[in-house]
Amino acid sequence: MAPTRVAAIDCGTNTIRLLIADAHPDGGPTGWHLERVQRRSTIVRLGQGVDRTGRLDEGALERALDVVTDYAERIRATGARSTRFVATSATRDASNRDVFVNGVRQRLGIEPEVVSGQEEARLSFAGSLLGARGGARRLVVDLGGGSTELVLGARAPEAAISLDTGSVRVTERYLADGVTSAAEAAARAHVRDLLDRAEEVMDLGATEELVGLAGTITTITAHALSLTDFEPDSIHGSRLPLGTVLASCEAILRSTAAERESWDYLRPGRRDVIAAGALVWSEIIGRVAERTGEAGRPLESAVTSLTDILDGIALSLADRADQRRD
């Protein structure tokens, strides 16, 4: 069977990403292998101020739509047969989201989807399965700018929740003036309250493998690996002791602006929010470690995946094309 060329766009609170790929059927857990044609990521901070104002900022809208225009040209040039544009937390929360949706429609010629947190979680889980081996029950954590998705399952989601917390939201709400003792305590209380809510719908103690996705977690992993630059081959699939990851979270949380600027794996658009992201990741790791320990099977490591919701969107397009053939 000839491969299907698809184009996936993930529009988050901080970043807009594009994946153009050829989908080949295979016998893996997703049924597909994605052969990358282009993969791009641009930080636009679409969610700037949304937590406070409930609206998308005019400057953020302009930055985001400029990127969509560029991505539309790339998609046309590569001849992708189908495109899906998925917008998540920032767009979901904005009262003027129609302005952005209309702008995307004009540029791409398709209807953008402002998906629910549950759909976001499902797509993230699907993307994380690419190349996965074994049938361990995994807790997949997609830590974004405005929301964080937790999905528990083996080959398919058994329980999922989208939490209104992330690197941008926590920064704007608690850490905008720096990491003071009071601000840190308030931020941690916020995350812990949300994890209490997560435990109402899933058993974190059943986690056999903890898998982290998205820019915050890949950055923390690069720090933990002492990389000099962002090295995808070193980061993807890396398995690190929880103590090592927590030590990097703590170091990032206490880092100075000069230190963050010196880390070549940390992109400029993420420098001001990475401390908040590290705080959120450390709280999730701590809670999961506590619950698995109570269950008598303490978790010892975390895995980082560079395949995530963007790949999940591409997989959904491959599935749709396959259904049309049938």
Rank of each mutant, 00 (worst) to 15 (best):
A7D: 01
V141A: 13
S82N: 03
V99R: 12
E250P: 09
L204V: 02
R122S: 00
P268C: 12
D164S: 10
S82G: 03
V273M: 11
A156S: 11
Y174I: 06
V303G: 10
C11S: 14
L108T: 06
Q48P: 01
R155D: 15
T219L: 03
T69M: 00
S147P: 09
S124Q: 06
V44F: 04
G59L: 01
G243I: 04
I16Y: 02
H223N: 07
A224P: 15
D93C: 01
R84L: 07
S95M: 10
A276Y: 14
G286Q: 06
E184R: 15
R254G: 00
T13C: 06
G31P: 05
W263M: 09
D164T: 01
R169P: 03
V140G: 11
Q106H: 09
T221C: 15
R254C: 00
P157F: 07
A23C: 10
S282H: 10
G205R: 09
T218P: 03
I220F: 07
A275P: 10
V104W: 05
V288D: 11
T244D: 10
P298I: 07
R173N: 08
S89C: 08
I9W: 06
C11M: 12
I75F: 08
E200R: 15
E199M: 15
E199G: 14
S124G: 13
D322G: 08
V303A: 08
T171H: 04
T307K: 12
A302I: 12
L150V: 07
T83R: 01
P298S: 10
T78D: 14
I110V: 15
L194H: 03
E158N: 04
T207P: 12
A189H: 13
V99M: 09
S95D: 15
L225W: 11
A8C: 02
I161M: 04
R138I: 07
D311A: 12
T165F: 10
M202T: 04
I43M: 13
W32A: 07
D70E: 15
G293V: 05
A278K: 11
G59N: 06
A302N: 05
C11V: 03
H190I: 13
I285N: 02
E172R: 04
E73F: 08
V115P: 07
R291N: 02
I309S: 04
T30F: 01
A198V: 03
I43P: 07
T292Q: 01
G212H: 00
G131A: 03
A77W: 12
L34H: 05
A251Q: 05
R291G: 03
R81H: 03
R192P: 14
R74H: 08
G59R: 12
E261K: 08
G31V: 05
D229Y: 13
R39V: 04
E58S: 08
A7E: 00
T88S: 04
S248N: 13
R92V: 02
